[in-house]
Design a protein around this nucleic acid. Structure first.
Lengths: 111, 111
DNA sequence: TTCATTGTTCAATAGTTCTTGAACTTTTGA
DNA sequence: TCAAAAGTTCAAGAACTATTGAACAATGAA
């Protein structure tokens, strides 16, 4: 069974804001942005919570249409859905990332 | 006892996003923006929920630093904290409002 | 095959959020 | 004074969210 992602049309503003309105997920999205273009394996975020907790948060982000998840071996590679988000909500991601850049930096192992 | 508002420094990005990540509050903020400059009495939002429910949502917005509430007679006049939000998170409010403008329009009585 | 690695899913639990209606406060106006 | 209007607060309940650890599946390497 392949990984479910919402279509661009299914992405809602309120849901995107609600999902990003959580410090752990805001940290994840900031890290993904710093990794621009390339993808991150879930393991990169292990310092932010337990394995199952990170899996939970990443699923929320995927279901909200914020991230794209691709299976490669035993890894899941996570990337931002920049094109979709920028098309739907121009400027939103960039302004959030700029504001999030002022937040206390994260301890990311292997990041 | 006067109405409590957080200082600019106490406003957090994650909290602002979380509070705006709710359809009712997104509708309220869009309405306030449409009313640019002027303030709205709570009653304007009555069609979005019960009196106590709107009071609850407006309190959330005030506590997050999104709105300013001023007592005038028996009314509470609500306005956006544009200067504070624009200073803290440049562009954020405008991009959210632009994206929210595409949402289905609200039935606002007396708005 | 066997084993470690990577991540998901499940059940349980604690905590939070939303919604409602009733009771209440404050202000205004007759 | 008395009543109406505008909001707030409270308690209760439903629904949702976050977190954990254990069990599970899938892959890749020895």
């Amino acid at each position: 069974m392949s990984i479910h992602h919402p279509t661009r049309e299914q992405i809602s503003l309120a849901n995107v804001l609600a999902v990003l309105g959580d410090p752990t997920r805001l940290a994840i999205v900031a890290c993904l942005a710093r990794n621009d273009g390339r993808s991150c394996a879930c393991g990169v975020f292990n310092s932010l919570g337990s394995k199952s907790n990170i899996s939970y948060h990443l699923a929320k982000m995927r279901e909200a249409g914020i991230t794209w998840t691709e299976a490669v071996g035993t890894n899941r590679l996570i990337s931002l859905r920049r094109d979709d988000l920028d098309t739907l909500f121009p400027g939103l991601l960039d302004t959030i990332l700029a504001a999030a850049a002022d937040l206390p930096p994260l301890e990311l192992t292997g990041g």
